[in-house]
Design a protein around this nucleic acid. Sequence first.
DNA 1: TAAATTGGCGCC
DNA 2: AAAGGGCGCCAATTTA
Length: 579
Amino acid sequence: MGGPARPASGALSVAGARLAPMTERWAVAAVDGGGALLAPLARDGTPAGPVLAEPDLVEAVRSRPGVARWVWRSTAGIYPRLLAAGVRVERCYDIECAELLLLGHAGRLGEPRSAAAALARLDGAPVPPDPPARSAEPGAQSSLFEPPSGAGVPFEGLLRVYADQLRRHDAAEHPDRMRLLTASESAGMLVAAEMHRDGLPWRADVHRELLTGLLGERYAGGGEPRRLAELADEVSAAFGRRVRPDLPADVVKAFARAGIPVKSTRRWELEELDHPAVEPLIAYKKLYRIWTAHGWSWLQDWVREGRFRPEYQPGGTVSGRWTTNGGGALQIPKVIRQAVVADPGWRLVVADADQMEPRVLAAISRDRGLMEVAGHDGDLYKALSDRAFSGDREHAKLAMLGAIYGQTSGDGLKNLAALRRRFPLAVAYVDDAARAGEEGRVVRTWLGRTSPPAASAGQDEEAGLPQEDPEGSGGAPDGGPARARGRFTRNFVVQGSAADWALLMLAALRRTIFEQGLRAQLVFFQHDEVIVHCPAEESAAVVEAIRAAGELAGRTAFGRTPVRFPFTTAVVERYADAK
DNA sequence: TAAATTGGCGCC
DNA sequence: AAAGGGCGCCAATTTA
C-alpha cells in the first residue's frame, strides 16, 4: 500500500475560508435514505432560517465550506459517513457529548445523556434510558458505528435541546471555560473518528516475526506456543509437581506446599522470593500476557490492510482521559511497538508531553514557586529538586507524584512536607480536592469536567456502616471509602485538567495540519503522547506544529501563566525507536 | 447459562 | 523500592 492519501475533495477549502470568514453555525441531521435536514442557527441557537431538506447528506455538507461549526447529535453517528465520502469538517458541536458534560457539571452524572433523554427532560416527558454501550467489533467499518437515524429525535427537538444547552453553559460556574470544554470535547470526537479511519500503520509481518521470536512456534492445535509450554514445564519442575502458572490460586498453593506463604502472585511479591520457580514464572507471565492480549489472534482481529484501527472514545473516563473500545490500543506493550512502522517515504513523529501533570498542577494552582519551576523546558524534577530537595531528583519526583496520587505511606509522605513548605498553593490545591472528596462533594477540572457525585449515604447505611467516622481513629492507614474518594478527587483535578489541556492541544494540532495543507495524519493519542504519520519532508513542520499546539493549549486552557508545556519529540520510522 | 467479579498486568 | 490515581483485557471463578 502506498502513502495514505488525503481525500481528494474536502469540505475544507483554506482559501475559501479566508475569503469568506467562517462565522456561520448550522445544525444538520441525517435522515433515512441518505438525506439530511439542515438549518442555519442564530447566536442563541435558535433557527435563523427555514429548515432545509436535502437529498444527500454528504453533498449538503460538502457544498457549505463556509460553515464555521456543524451542530449535530452525535459525531460517531454522522461523521464516519462524511469521512467515507472524503469530507472533513473543521469544527463541530456534539450535542450528546455536551449533554454528558453539562449533566456532570450540574452534579447529575449518571442520568441518561442521549439527545432523546435531553429532549424528554425539556418536555417533562418520561426520560428514556441510554442504549447499552456496545463493544467494538474488531473489523468494524467506521461508517457503521451507529445507526444513521437521529435516534428518534425530531429535528425540531434537537434544535431546542441545543438552544437549551447554550443557556446551560451560561449558568455554569465558569461559562467561558464550559464552552471551551464542550467545544474541545467535540473536536476530540472529530479527531477520534479521523484516527479510526486513517489508522495506525501496522506491519503484520513484523508483528508475526516478533511473536515467533518471543513465543516460539505456534502449535496447530491452538494451545500455548512452544516457549510458553517450556516455561510452564520449568515451573512445574521447580515445584516437583504440575502447576499451571496462569492460575494464581494454583501458584499460591504450590508455594505454600514448598513452605513459602505468599499473599498473591504479583510480580513484585514473587521477585522477593528465593525459589527456582520464580524466574520461569515471571518470564511466563510476561509472555503469556503478550500471547493473550497482543498475539496472533489480536493481529488477526485488529489489523487490516496495514492499519490498526481502534475505536477511540474521547472522555471515556470520568476524568476526561480517552479510552478505546476493543483492541487495547492504549496498552500496547513496548516490545510490540516495533510493529508500528511508517509507510515507505513517511515518518512517525512521536511526541510525548514532558511531566505534564506537575506542569498542569502549577498552572491550575497558580503556585508561584511551582510555576517558576514549570516555566522552563528542561527537566522539571531537576528544577524542583534544585529548589526544594537539595538536588535529590528522585525524592523530588516521588514527593510530587505522591502529592498528585494521594500517597498514604512511605518516603514520599515525608518528602511531601518539604513540598508543602516550598509550594504551599500547589499542595493546598490537591489537598482541598481530597478534602472535598472525603466530604462527599464533587470537584471539577479547570475547564469544568466534574467528578461523579459520591455514592448516596443510603448505600453505607444498607452496608451496615456507621455514619460517623467510618474509619475510626485506629483504622487502616489508607482509610476506608471516604479516604479512597479523597485520593480519587485529589488525582481527578490534576489528571482531568491535564486531559483538558491535551484535548485543546489535539484540536490545535489538527487545525494546524489542515491550515498548512499537510498530508500528515494524526494516528495515535494516549493521554500525553501523540503520533503523527507524515511524509518525511513534512516532519519538521509537524514537529513545530506539535510544539506550538502545546503552548497554545496551555494559554487557551489556563490563561497567561509562565508555565511551559514542552514535548520530547522523535522522528522515526518505527514507534519502538522513539524512546 | 449468562453476567458480574477477581487477580494479574499492560499502558499513562 | 513501593505505592498512591486512571483505564482495558484476559482467564477463571463466583453469583444471579
